[in-house]
Design a protein around this nucleic acid. Sequence first.
DNA 1: CCCTTTCATCAAATTATTTTGATATATTAA
DNA 2: TTAATATATCAAAATAATTTGATGAAAGGG
Lengths: 108, 108
Amino acid sequence: MSEHSPVKDISTEVSFSEYEAKFKALADKKRLHILHLLSQQNSCCVCDLSELIDMPQSKLSYHLKILLDAKLIIKETRGTWSYYMINEAELNHLLSPELCCIFKPSRC
Amino acid sequence: MSEHSPVKDISTEVSFSEYEAKFKALADKKRLHILHLLSQQNSCCVCDLSELIDMPQSKLSYHLKILLDAKLIIKETRGTWSYYMINEAELNHLLSPELCCIFKPSRC
DNA sequence: CCCTTTCATCAAATTATTTTGATATATTAA
DNA sequence: TTAATATATCAAAATAATTTGATGAAAGGG
């Protein structure tokens, strides 16, 4: 690695950690399914999603938190309801245009 | 999910499994580092990579296998040496152009 | 043939992630 | 106020992924 400056190495390190978290969030069939469902509605509350995906609420909340922490989805609270929606800008930054049909709301 | 045909559901299922494996392979700092290093050489053998990344050979082989199984890298055997290189087509299909500077050989 | 190098694979130990069921908080409705 | 609903979080159990050190196979050199 002799041709790299320390500064570049540090910033690359930081990127690796950041992307690790985002790819980790994507690295699960159930979460890909959640993203797919969210991409088909404008926004969706936990209880509706729980029925759609046939998953107990605590399990779903666990997975939503992982997606939220990775900033792949956005949360909006109204009363006791939590509405989740796709963070399209973030997915655009991360994924190829070819993947948009599966994981992003705006169709190809 | 009433508005979807079974066929579409099945193919989406298949996609989810396929992408799960690929994102799982990307979901690790060490493997991102390996991809980054490979993207800076045309190809690299395990022993050289092991020194570059300062990682014991068996551990490195474990991670290379995960990347190889996900088809994110390509392996070429010559004698006792195994040379690994980035599978650029696959990464292009998967990742956004913005990520190319970090994980793909051809610079932006 | 024997020795060395390169690499893959294995089993055991360790560590991380996920699932489950229970509980807690906040909001709304009666 | 009481009851019901929506959601988050917790701790324990269950699963899955990673690390480690050892072993073995294949190739090449002397």
